[in-house]
Computed example of a mutant assay.
Amino acid sequence: MERMICAGRDSLIVRPMTGVPPLEIYDAYHDEIQAIFRSRLLTQVLIALGSGSRSLPALRDATGSSSQALIPKIRQLEALQYVEQVRGDYVLTPIGRLVEPEIERLVTLMGVLGRHREFWVEHELDSIPPESLGELRHLYNAMVIRDVEEDIYAVHAMFAEIIRKASWVHGVSSIMSPVQANLIEQVIIENKPVELVVSPEIAGKLAKEPYRATLESLKEYSRAVIYVSPAPFRLGMAVTESCLSLGLYRRDTGTYDTASDLVSSDPAAVAWGERVFRHYRAIASPLSIPPDK
């Protein structure tokens, strides 16, 4: 079976290249696949060794299990040639180092979906670039902010706080309101760098009032640039040096969900948001407002 391997822990891709259906591959190797995922300890040992060699006592601490329970599982992993012993410690073999990152990615993805299942199930995900969808694990520490009866402006208040505290703002948006525009305007007036990628529909709205006059008044601020995506998209996202705010469209109504945002100050989530921004920025062009007729 031919395989494609891209070096690097975070970019490792091991994918069948022969066109063999995954279900057929599963049928052929289901015993080995099930051996790993059926056993909590097998999975835990592999993930623990993903960060480096460990002694048996260290594996006991990492898994919360006794030597009596661990040793048979380690022997099973040795028989599968995923784990070996080097100078008394246990380490991943070369093929173990191929398998472990894929297991870790799946585990963390399931964690992200499990923590905020309602958010991911309720919303459209199509406008998140495929490569970023494959990295949702970086959003594990995010929290969902929702408008509730006791605080009907929770989402707006959080977004406003993020924008006001920012030293710079990168945004991707297919929505715009005078309130949002005012928040961004204040950041621009403070001469902080602002880059915003908007959808073609929003670009058309910005050429009209009440936004046109605001854009005209901000021309002198060279650190603010608005770009237009060549194709429609459906999301609203802001990234700053310390925070990510992500809003999506509801699947049931097809409208932007103003009542819930995914927010994170985790550096991994901020870096994830920056990659989404760079994806859209790379294909966008500077906004050009036609002269008044």
Rank of each mutant, 00 (worst) to 15 (best):
T18W: 14
P129H: 03
L92G: 00
R75Q: 04
M176R: 08
M17K: 07
I25P: 04
A79D: 03
G8E: 04
P57L: 08
G8Y: 01
P290Y: 05
L215A: 00
T108F: 11
S177P: 02
F119A: 01
V228C: 08
L106C: 00
H116R: 14
D252C: 11
Q85E: 15
D126M: 11
Q34W: 14
P267V: 03
E100T: 11
F233W: 02
G273S: 08
E195H: 06
L248E: 06
D126Q: 12
E100L: 07
I188A: 01
E100H: 04
R105Y: 08
A282Y: 04
I162V: 14
R115Q: 13
G50P: 01
R212E: 02
V99K: 01
L133K: 08
A213V: 11
A203K: 04
L133G: 09
V148N: 07
V198C: 00
T93K: 02
G171E: 09
P230T: 02
V20Y: 09
A181C: 08
R275F: 08
I163T: 13
E150L: 12
I33S: 04
T258F: 15
L133Y: 07
S217Y: 03
P22C: 05
M110Q: 15
H156W: 15
I71K: 10
S132D: 09
Y221Q: 04
S217N: 06
E24R: 12
V225D: 01
G273P: 02
Q186A: 13
V179E: 13
K208L: 14
G114D: 07
A62W: 09
P178N: 02
W168H: 11
L49I: 06
D61Y: 08
D27I: 09
R60Q: 15
P200K: 06
W120E: 05
D147I: 03
P290T: 05
Q186K: 15
H116K: 14
H123V: 10
Q85C: 09
I162F: 03
Y140M: 10
V225R: 14
D61P: 01
G273R: 07
L98W: 06
Q85L: 09
P286A: 05
R97P: 05
H138R: 15
Y82V: 13
S167L: 09
R223S: 15
A28I: 12
Q186H: 13
V194I: 05
V187M: 00
R40P: 05
S173E: 05
V91T: 12
S288W: 13
L235G: 00
G96C: 05
I152P: 00
R54P: 08
